[in-house]
């Protein structure tokens, strides 16, 4: 198993994701949302809102957070935690950029 030795897997290029947007990465039964902010930081979260499993990749990205498209919970991209009065957290997936390449750490994935 490849990933046991090398957890970092290339999923795409920075330019594949629009600024303040997101793309999905499929991983077995799971979906991972990869976000790009205004200032080109990238984050990866499991594409599942802690509220009712809304697809976070479809939300609006703003200032280090994403607003869930179903009922407007605001989730922090860096911690996966719900902001404000709501509570709950989404799984955060380690991510890094090398040159323009986006790599995620798949070792934590089920």
């Amino acid at each position: 198993m490849n990933s046991a030795i090398e957890p970092w897997v290339l999923v795409g290029q920075l330019s594949d994701i629009p600024r303040q947007g997101a793309r999905c990465v499929k991983h077995d039964k799971q979906s991972i949302a990869v976000f790009r902010t205004m200032d080109d930081q990238v984050f990866a979260l499991e594409d599942k809102c802690p509220h009712k499993c809304g697809p976070l990749s479809q939300g609006i990205v703003h200032d280090g957070c994403v607003t869930c498209p179903l009922h407007n919970w605001v989730i922090s991209l860096s911690t996966g935690e719900a902001q404000g009065a709501d509570s709950g957290a989404t799984l955060c997936i380690p991510i890094k950029i090398e040159q323009e390449n986006i790599l995620i750490d798949v070792s934590k994935l089920r």
Binding site: S3, V9, G12, D16, R23, H27, V34, V106
Partner: peptide
């Protein structure tokens, strides 16, 4: 469409 599909790789 998804940016990448890692399913095959992991299995």
């Amino acid at each position: 469409k998804p940016m990448a599909d890692l399913s095959v790789e992991v299995v």
